[in-house]
């Protein structure tokens, strides 16, 4: 099942990466707050429409009317304790009903939103290395503590220097390198693993670039979260390679914050457009 999901996500990532590169290309050229706001607005409206057509709008309308009626009953008959408690009970029941009616559209909406967030994460979750900056490169290997270790090395490259060569953590089957960025550009680090060559993207530059934090292994969630690079196969010796990029510092488009900003901004835009699109939520 997990392998099937990994196949599906890998397959979906191909067109999504192509579309993502094309559609989000302007992100590189505009301030982060602006690009995140525009994307959030567009997504808020699109998801609102999706919500409209995947939810039972009539039923939501009925439940909301019932909730409103009982809220008004609280006010109208406030001197009657029995009516107050009864109305509150019905409001709670209505709130539960709304949650129930939200399940289907929420499940439907979750799939595209995860794929889109993964594409956005490439831009906002970290910033590329700047020339002169150092970063850790971590390779995770298959097998257990007793398994044999392959011969691993990094081929020399013009974009970066290896300043601390491989350090092995036997208990975790991980190998660490420290590199120092030299010239701007989207490059590949080439690793020689026994007789096999594997690659990992390395982003060096100023401003916004698509930064792939990890080339994932054969796990559907990792592939979903790191869509940019082709995942390692289930039989590969290498399970994943990640680079510890520096955090992007911004409350609207910085590491960690961008997701929260997206959530709030998309909600706000969805709520603004709700009356025009006649959507009940």
């Amino acid at each position: 099942m997990m392998s099937f999901l990994a196949h599906i996500v890998t397959w979906l990532n191909v067109p999504l990466n192509a579309a993502g590169k094309l559609l989000t290309a302007p992100v590189a050229a505009v301030p982060g707050w602006l690009s995140n706001t525009v994307i959030s607005a567009a997504m808020g409206v699109i998801l609102l429409v999706l919500w409209k057509y995947t939810s039972n709008q009539d039923a939501i309308g009925r439940v909301k009317d019932d909730i409103k009626a009982n809220m008004l009953a609280l006010k109208l008959f406030k001197d009657s304790i029995s009516v107050t408690l009864q109305a509150q009970g019905r409001v709670f029941k209505g709130a539960g009903g709304l949650l129930f009616h939200a399940i289907r559209p929420m499940l439907v909406v979750t799939v595209p939103i995860c794929l889109i967030l993964a594409q956005m994460g490439l831009w906002y979750q970290a910033r590329p290395l700047q020339p002169g900056e150092e970063a850790l490169v971590v390779m995770e290997l298959n097998g257990n503590v007793d398994s044999a270790w392959p011969n691993v090395s990094i081929a020399s490259m013009p974009a970066a220097d290896v300043i601390i060569d491989q350090t092995r953590v036997f208990s975790k089957r991980q190998i660490y390198w420290k590199i120092k960025a030299r010239e701007n550009g989207l490059n590949n680090i080439v690793f020689q693993v026994d007789n096999e060559q594997v690659e990992k993207e390395l982003a060096i530059g100023n401003g916004f670039m698509r930064v792939s934090l990890q080339r994932p292994g054969w796990h559907w969630f990792d592939i979903l979260e790191h869509p940019s690079e082709k995942p390692f196969g289930p039989d590969s010796v290498v399970q994943s390679i990640s680079i510890k990029y520096p955090d992007r510092l911004s409350r609207t488009s910085g590491t960690g914050w961008w997701v929260a900003y997206f959530f709030v901004a998309s909600m706000v835009f969805a709520l603004i457009f709700k009356p025009f699109l006649k959507v009940r939520i």
Partner: peptide, 22 residues
């Protein structure tokens, strides 16, 4: 919630706020 995006937000606005307000 953020990862579910507006979907969770809609559900939150729709029911949780109602719950708290009531």
């Amino acid at each position: 919630q953020a990862y579910i995006g507006p979907g969770a937000g809609f559900a939150f606005f729709g029911s949780m706020l109602t719950f708290f307000y009531a």
